[in-house]
Amino acid sequence: MSMRVELDVPKCVASGQCVMAAPDVFDQRDDDGVAILLEEHPGDELLDEVREAVAICPAAAIRLVDQ
C-alpha cells in the first residue's frame, strides 16, 4: 500500500511552507508561488517531510491519504 499526496490548488495561498518542509515533493510556480505537486506517490523516506508539510500548510490544502 502506498500513500498518495493530494494538493487542493484553489485553496493554496502560496506560503511555500510545503517547499520548506518537503522540497523533493513540492515546488512553487515562479510567478505567483502556488504549490506544484512534484511527486504524487512519495517514497517512504519522504513521508515524514510530507507529514510536516501537511501540518504546517496554513491553508490546510494538503492531505496524505492511504490508497
Partner: peptide
C-alpha cells in the same frame, strides 16, 4: 495574495 507572492517564493528568497 497571488499577485504579491512572487517575490516571497522560497527559491527566490
Amino acid at each position: 495574495r497571488r499577485t504579491v507572492n512572487g517575490p516571497f517564493v522560497v527559491k527566490r528568497i
